[in-house]
Simulated assay, not measured.
Amino acid sequence: MTPRPRPAPAPTSLEAVPSPRRGGTLTPAVAPPRFAALGDSLTAGIGDPVDGGDWRGWAALLGGTLGGGEDGTRFRNFAVSGALTRDVEERQTPDALAFAPDIASVVVGVNDTLRRAFDIQDLAPRLDRVCAALAGRGTVLLTACLPDPGAMLGLPAPLARPLARRQRALNAVVHVLATRYDTVHLHLADTAWVADRSLWSADRLHPGERGHRMIAARFHTALTAQGFALGPPPALDPDRPPPTRAESLRWLATSGTGWVARRCRDLLPELLRLAGDEITHRARGSSAGLDLRADHALSGALAALAAAPTGNGN
């Protein structure tokens, strides 16, 4: 029987944490590796604008260190802003498998926590199947736990607590999968990382250029240590000055407002209901019941993962 997976210890730093690989040390690459990036707006590069109105982001910065020119033969970014775990499984993973990557990043889930129908027992097996499909062909996976969006946005406690429960559940699942598939893992929910406002963009949900560069550099360090043939690491210093307050407000009033509105259309009614539950339970002194309900759902998700066979031949 497969041992029941346990969440990894609480994160202590932003450093990448490569798990010890089953079967020995990774054989050093003889050619630049192929890198596929899967996920949502974080991986699509939101928060790191470049000339022409496009986004770059940490995955493109890391991909730029692989060699092989700019023809897309070594790096493909399949991430789409707004993607859910379901989208990564059903749309991005088949394309990524066809690309036959040596490295693949799977960083997704925050959008799921911002949806009315969040269900950790549905999300966990989807994310497991994505990791299994990629690891099953020998791909080295990059993963990350993510900060709580309620805390990032500074929401009032009745609104923030439901989101915090969801994000904790998501991160617990990611920690289990990081161990199960020996991923190179970043603790992006680390307190120091979250508190450093110079790393974040105006919307308070996505890294700015400096944050994206730091993520790319951390993954680069870990992959180089595992023997991948990478070029020089991405520079940590930004190419451009941080946006002024006026520029940040302009972005929030235009593109940022639309981004938030698209998500609130689905989330807001449910979040208001959850906030009502928080207030009611707090008044009754039964807030612990909400935590127990969330813990029970998470326990069911982790138990299902423990019972499922791995897809990487281990």
Score class of each variant (00 low, 15 high):
Arg6Thr: 15
Ala10His: 05
Ser13Leu: 01
Val17Arg: 15
Pro20Ala: 15
Arg21Ala: 14
Gly23Asp: 02
Thr27Ser: 09
Phe35Trp: 04
Thr43Gly: 03
Asp51Thr: 10
Arg56Pro: 01
Arg56Ser: 11
Gly63Asn: 09
Gly64Phe: 11
Gly64Ile: 09
Thr65Ala: 12
Thr65Pro: 04
Leu66His: 03
Arg74Thr: 15
Ala79Cys: 03
Leu84Lys: 08
Thr93Ser: 08
Pro94Thr: 09
Asp95Ala: 15
Val110Lys: 00
Thr113Lys: 01
Leu114Phe: 03
Arg115Ala: 10
Arg116Phe: 08
Asp128Val: 04
Ala135Met: 04
Leu141Ala: 00
Thr143Glu: 05
Thr143Tyr: 01
Ala144His: 08
Pro147Asn: 06
Pro147Thr: 08
Gly150Pro: 08
Ala151Glu: 13
Ala151Thr: 12
Ala151Asp: 11
Ala151Cys: 01
Met152Asp: 00
Gly154Arg: 03
Gly154Met: 06
Pro156Phe: 10
Pro156Asp: 11
Pro158Ile: 11
Ala160Lys: 13
Ala160Met: 12
Arg161Phe: 05
Pro162Asp: 06
Ala164Pro: 00
Ala164Glu: 14
Ala164Ile: 01
Arg165Tyr: 05
Arg168Val: 10
Leu170Gln: 06
Val173Tyr: 04
Val174Gly: 03
His175Val: 00
His175Arg: 14
Leu177Cys: 11
Ala178Arg: 00
Asp182Leu: 03
His187Thr: 03
Leu188Ala: 11
Leu188Tyr: 07
Ala189Gly: 14
Ala189Val: 01
Ala192Ser: 15
Val194Ile: 14
Ala195Gly: 11
Asp196Leu: 09
Trp200Lys: 02
Trp200His: 07
Ser201Gly: 15
Ala202Ile: 01
His206Met: 11
Gly208Met: 02
Gly211Tyr: 06
Gly211Trp: 07
Met214Gly: 06
Met214Cys: 11
Met214Gln: 14
Ala216Gly: 07
Ala216His: 08
Thr221Ala: 15
Thr224Glu: 13
Ala229Asp: 14
Pro232Ile: 09
Pro232Ala: 13
Pro233His: 06
Pro233Val: 10
Thr244Lys: 02
Ala253Thr: 11
Ser255Glu: 15
Trp259Gly: 00
Arg262Asp: 13
Arg263Thr: 12
Cys264Glu: 13
Arg265Gly: 05
Ala275His: 04
Ala275Glu: 06
Glu278Val: 12
Ile279Leu: 15
Ile279Pro: 00
Thr280Trp: 12
Thr280Lys: 06
Arg284Cys: 07
Ser286Arg: 15
Ala288Lys: 01
Leu290Tyr: 02
Leu292Asp: 14
Arg293Pro: 00
Arg293Thr: 14
Ala294Arg: 00
His296Lys: 11
Ser299Lys: 04
Gly300Thr: 04
Gly300Val: 03
Leu305Tyr: 04
Leu305Arg: 03
Ala307Phe: 10
Pro309Glu: 12
Asn312Met: 03
